[in-house]
């Protein structure tokens, strides 16, 4: 009898170990059916592209209020579109898939020249519509590291192949020294966003990088600890600030409406919040001539390989 109860308790234990059966119907994993086609939206959203100045997640977080504001004003859904590189965004603007885009200065210069990318507005930051390229090194790098010349034979991080501040300007500096980045630096790599380039330097992954001053200020303001890990050793002449552009396919009425909304944001309390999250005082009209300096720099450097 004792043996019997022992066996019974074993069986009971065994049955206790089985998790409760879900009551859901059986799903046939091998019975594959075609996925339903993407249902076309009833209302075509306004697609806004943001170039990867900062990481995709950071972009999505910071532009949420601004896009929500646009959607509310236009009474139309607004969809954020991001791509890894500037040139992909330019392609979307050219094809008209996106209506509005926040692009980099050099991307505007390139797009304007290639397919007539149109300026819509420009952000004004700290009262200025210019920005700079900052040459940064790790805070613990030798004290005599004071210019790009001191980075010879080191590892250098570029942001985007097309970036004005992150690629074109440092290439210009190296060319001024009579060399080319491939020979001058031991190794270079692309981070595809400025905040990642800052982090690459802060973590010692790169011995130097050139970044957008706006992103740098924004990132250091948000994370002061990051500022302690890096040191700015050079500041470029001013360039026209990265603008807001529209695709040449956008109807003039929509362009005017968008322009009016952006310019009026600073006077609207809700709009002010949207401006604040992207670190902008207000949006202003800007003339194409503001980008001549960048255009000249690009011409001086020559075509850069992507």
């Amino acid at each position: 009898m004792r043996y019997l109860s022992f066996i019974l308790s074993l069986l009971l234990l065994a049955s206790c170990a089985v998790p409760p059966e879900p009551s859901a119907p059986v799903i046939h994993l091998s019975d594959l059916k075609p996925l339903p086609a993407d249902p076309s939206d009833d209302v075509v959203p306004l697609r806004v592209a943001v170039a990867a100045v900062i990481s995709p997640k950071g972009t999505a977080e910071s532009y949420q209020f601004l896009l929500d504001y646009l959607s509310q004003k236009l009474d139309r859904p607004v969809e954020l579109v991001q791509r890894r590189t500037y040139s992909e965004v330019n392609d979307l603007v050219e094809s008209g898939y996106v209506d509005v885009a926040f692009v980099c200065t050099s991307a505007y210069v390139d797009g304007n020249e290639k397919f007539g990318m149109e300026l819509l507005a420009a952000p004004q930051v700290n009262g200025e519509t210019v920005y700079y390229s900052l040459l940064i090194v790790p805070a613990d790098s030798p004290a005599q590291t004071r210019s790009v010349a001191d980075l010879r034979g080191r590892v250098f991080a570029f942001t985007d192949p097309m970036s004005n501040t992150g690629r074109v300007y440092p290439t210009y500096l190296v060319q001024q020294l009579g060399s080319a980045p491939d020979q001058f630096f031991a190794r270079t790599f692309f981070t595809y966003s400025h905040d990642d380039a800052i982090r690459a330097v802060a973590d010692g992954l790169a011995d130097g990088a050139a970044v957008d001053s706006l992103v740098y200020d924004f990132a250091v303001a948000r994370d002061p600890a990051l500022g302690e890990k890096i040191r700015v050793i050079h500041r470029s002449p001013p360039f026209g600030i990265p603008p807001v552009v529209v695709s040449p396919t956008v109807r003039p009425q929509l362009k005017a409406e968008l322009q009016s909304i952006l310019l009026g944001m600073a006077d609207d309390p809700q709009g002010q919040k949207g401006l604040q999250t992207v670190g902008v005082d207000k949006f202003v009209l800007i003339d194409d001539s503001a980008y001549d300096s960048a255009r000249n720099l690009l011409a001086a450097v020559g075509p850069v390989s992507p």
């Binding site: 059966e21 859901a24 059986v26 799903i27 994993l29």
Partner: peptide, 10 residues
């Protein structure tokens, strides 16, 4: 959740 599938529990 535990799904009942034709290939056992998932």
């Amino acid at each position: 959740i535990i799904l009942n599938t034709d290939e056992g529990k998932v």
